[in-house]
Design a protein around this nucleic acid. Sequence first.
DNA 1: TCTGGGGTCCTAGGACCC
DNA 2: TCTGGGGTCCTAGGACCC
Length: 340
Amino acid sequence: MVILHADADAFFAAVEQRDDPRMRGRPMVVAHEVVACPSYEARALGIHAGMPLRQVQRRWPQVLVSGYRDEAYAEASAALFALFHRFTPLVEPGSVEEAFLDVTGRDDGDPVGLARALREAARAEVGLPVSVGVGRTKLMAKLASRRAKPDGLVVVDAGLEAHLRPGLRLDDLWGVGATTYEKLHATGLFDVADLDGLDVEDLTFVVGTAMARRLVSIARGTDDATIRLPGARRSVSASRSFPATRTRSKVVAVLDTCIERAVTRVRGLDDPPRLPRRLEVLVRYDDGTTAVERAPLDAPTLDPAALRTAAGQLLEQTAYDRDGRGVTLVGVTLPLPAPA
DNA sequence: TCTGGGGTCCTAGGACCC
DNA sequence: TCTGGGGTCCTAGGACCC
């Protein structure tokens, strides 16, 4: 198997730098209140996603700021995926900016040449830097692309894989987050070599069945190289953060905007559009906690007025305006039924 | 340090049916 | 009338990803 992991570098920032010559080579961020994506030049200063924009502007006045241009990102993403599909039909999206490609049998025995061709085409035709990792499994390709960033190419061949695999830290594994690592750590397991000789039953009581199977297959080198083609979208959500507020009209106005955005995106998905049967409202407070309220709709609908009414009721259930905390984000999620 | 604005998948448990 | 076994569907909530 030959798997590529192709990953556009600092995607949102790179699109802005491509389209606006003044941004090129400069520290800049795509942000709205909070940094969503810093350019590599900005990262070099110590700026990272999630920083409040005001803090960035105070400390680094030279940093340029771009707002979001959703349409430009969607277009760039589509161009990227069209390019991926020229190399193979077996493309598994990871996000708008990255994908696994199974190019087994398509590389003329030269995976490096193929990966180079992909990077060059992305640069020439889409105008974006794309890092590529090559490996025998998705995990190895992903590790390789991580090492390749920014704007690089790394190959993990069989020899390097055999060398690397046992020493991989469990919290470096894609799919193992803080919670799972904590459980493994508490059991005395730190790296892949520690899994040697354990089987699924041994690990199930620690991390659950699905994770136990994954870990055992990673330890044995039989982990996943299967490309899963994308199915229909399962949900659409829209949210917006803002400086902490307890003003009801402000919160409701932002929520209404989110509903409009989500409805527009759902309509763009299918024709005729799938109608949500439920609605979720998300509220984040300035103490960092998050509340979600959900309820079935009276009838499946994309009518903004009906959704606003339902969302308003859910918002009231959060008691957002009565407990003294400030609200810093609101959003809606529309879960979508499977296509007919 | 775990943010923002998106998403997916897994698991547990309840409802309902035979 | 009650119990038990088994299957499916749905939802809530958590973990994880970029």
